[in-house]
Nucleic acid binder design. Structure first.
Lengths: 146, 146
DNA sequence: TATTGTTATACTCTATAACTATA
DNA sequence: TATAGTTATAGAGTATAACAATA
């Protein structure tokens, strides 16, 4: 298998994926403005919506960001009225974050909008392209988890 | 083909890719600190290193970023001594950006380091995982270009 | 002492708007 | 008028360091 002519180096591969993901994201944001939350903030909301109340540490571990960063992210959610803090009765150092009804509505609407947009993008391409993305997503998940 | 049980929605697919790419990026930065430039800035330097002098507009078109953003990015390069501005004699509104010797050294070192790190990550996984990433990179490139 | 969470601060990356200089 | 580029400003998202409260 000696196809040097077209094979990108690992660094080129990484740069291409990083760049194009960012470009698609920005295009989505400009074509389908989604509300007043950024992407990372919306993903935290989605996590709370799907999985129920979580502590700050649980969230920062899940998303692999520092607790200080996550604290600011959930602040954007509580300030916007999309989530609330509640003390954990079992350990009073802990705070449990939960969605509000407004948060649930926003999470549902954002998911629908993103599904529609990405399905539209994929429909314009080949029929097996979706499975390419599925396999890549699974692989990236394994790489990030290890 | 009714495998609902495992098939992610398009939004989940997008979120998973976006998230894990960011996580891998942050892990790379913490394991192999790479110099004083951020990722986007380093990618612009790499572009100048590989393809030679480019105008601001050419760079902002290529990376699909506003001219104002690109202006700040190349400012970080010139401030660090990695690139220089030169007026274009054919059109005096235009500025051509080029790498300095220090910029060439940094671009080469960063590429080698990124290649080594990502090859290491891939070596820990299955043998066809690299081709999964290659196909995904090509697909994302087509999606972003369209 | 160790853990949980917050605040203060700083840096990268992006954007829009207002501007200058040249075509 | 239109294009190339810069500057001012703002906001998201990330980090580290210093801190308070609780275990």
């Amino acid at each position: 298998m000696d196809d040097d002519a077209t094979a990108p180096t690992a660094a080129e591969l990484g740069a291409q994926i990083r760049l194009t993901v960012g470009q698609l994201q920005r295009r989505f944001r400009s074509e389908r403005p989604d509300g007043d939350l950024g992407d990372a903030t919306l993903e935290v909301l989605t996590r709370l919506f799907k999985d129920g109340p979580r502590s700050l540490t649980a969230l920062s571990d899940h998303f692999r960001v520092s607790p200080a960063s996550m604290s600011q992210t959930v602040n954007r959610l509580t300030t916007g009225g999309y989530a609330v803090r509640a003390p954990d009765p079992d350990d009073r150092r802990r705070v449990l974050f939960s969605t509000t009804p407004a948060g649930d509505r926003l999470a549902g609407a954002a998911r629908a909008q993103r599904n529609a947009w990405l399905d539209e993008q994929l429909a314009a391409l080949g029929p097996d392209d979706r499975s390419v993305l599925e396999r890549a997503a699974a692989l990236l998940g394994r790489m990030a988890a290890s």
